[in-house]
């Protein structure tokens, strides 16, 4: 057995999983609170990538000539702010008016919002693929590892890890994080202790969108090209990851994403890369048969 190859695939899988995880978190957090699959979430990720592309373009044209990495950081920050505004507005326009409607209505609205955003970007930008500049330099210290992880991959891994830590701290210790957990566990009681549930839901959409935009910028600088349709597949995959881990469960989304990413690269590397998506969705079907609640989808038993 070729262990070097195996390790290479594993690294590739984890990198892929990181991107899925960043997007899947948005799905799972929103679902946890309002039991809605936000199908427009993939589009937020795409918008994030586009904003970053536009900003890098402007920076390059205006002769802002620092290192590529600082351009990337600046572009990412602006992309994140834009995406947060998109997420907030999306919730306000497409979901809040349907808060007390039957569950199917917001779902349809979500699909509509997804189609709208995709076409909107297609219209104001272009349906073609656009090249995304290579902004991450080749780090010298990565030389010995370059067979397994490229410099871009390293940036993805580090940024994802930092984002996860930040998210964990936010949810565990901050006031808004506690309010989010309380709302998720018991919305009526959350209102009875004085939590403004609408504000919590807005915050959830904003946080999810921020994560998706980070993922969008990262993936764009890895693949080197984006178009208005990239949100669709990424969204479906991340949704799969969230279901795989147990929808509504935050650690589950990360675990599901890693499992999905690794399954995909292993399937592609050992069997055939043409069937990459088959491995992803085949795995989903398998999990849904064997563990319908997902890998970690099991609530603490409550005594009544």
């Amino acid at each position: 057995m070729d262990f070097e190859y195996l390790f290479e695939l594993l690294c590739g899988g984890v990198v892929k999983g990181s991107i899925y995880a960043l997007i899947a978190l948005g799905y799972t957090m929103v679902y946890g609170i309002i039991q809605l699959i936000n199908f427009a979430h993939g589009e937020i990720y795409m918008v994030g990538a586009f904003v970053a592309l536009i900003i890098t373009g402007i920076l390059t044209l205006s002769g802002y000539s620092d290192s590529g990495l600082s351009v990337l950081v600046l572009a990412a920050v602006i992309a994140v702010i834009y995406a947060a505004a998109y997420g907030y507005t999306l919730e306000k326009i497409a979901y809040r008016p349907l808060r007390n409607a039957p569950r199917l209505s917001p779902l349809i609205s979500a699909i509509g919002a997804s189609i709208f955003l995709m076409n909107y970007v297609q219209l104001v930008q272009t349906p073609d693929f656009l090249p995304f500049p290579e902004l991450v330099p080749e780090f010298e210290f990565m030389e010995p590892l370059s067979r397994f992880v490229s410099s871009v991959d390293m940036v993805i891994l580090v940024v994802t890890a930092l984002t996860m830590v930040a998210l964990t701290v936010l949810i565990k210790y901050t006031k808004i994080g506690k309010a989010m957990r309380a709302t998720q566990q018991d919305m009526v009681m959350a209102r009875l202790v004085g939590i403004n549930v609408d504000r919590v839901i807005s915050a959830t959409f904003i946080i999810g969108s921020v994560l998706a935009a980070i993922a969008g910028v990262l993936i764009a600088s890895r693949t080197g090209q984006i178009n208005s349709a990239i949100g669709f597949m990424a969204g479906i995959k991340a949704f799969t990851a969230a279901v795989l881990g147990g929808i509504g469960n935050i650690p589950g989304a990360v675990l599901g994403a890693m499992v999905l990413g690794i399954a995909e690269t292993f399937g592609a590397g050992y069997i055939s890369s043409a069937y990459e998506d088959v491995f992803a969705f085949g795995l989903l079907v398998l999990i849904l048969i064997l563990r319908p609640a997902g890998l970690l989808g099991k609530a603490v038993k409550q005594k009544v």
Binding site: K178, Q185, M189, L192, V193, A299, V300
Partner: peptide, 24 residues
């Protein structure tokens, strides 16, 4: 209000439940 059925936040610790009471 202490609602019927108690409505404890099930996955939060006792301390966290108490802190939620003091949310405002």
């Amino acid at each position: 209000q202490v609602p019927e059925g108690r409505h404890i936040f099930p996955q939060m610790s006792v301390i966290e439940n108490l802190e939620m009471g003091a949310y405002l």
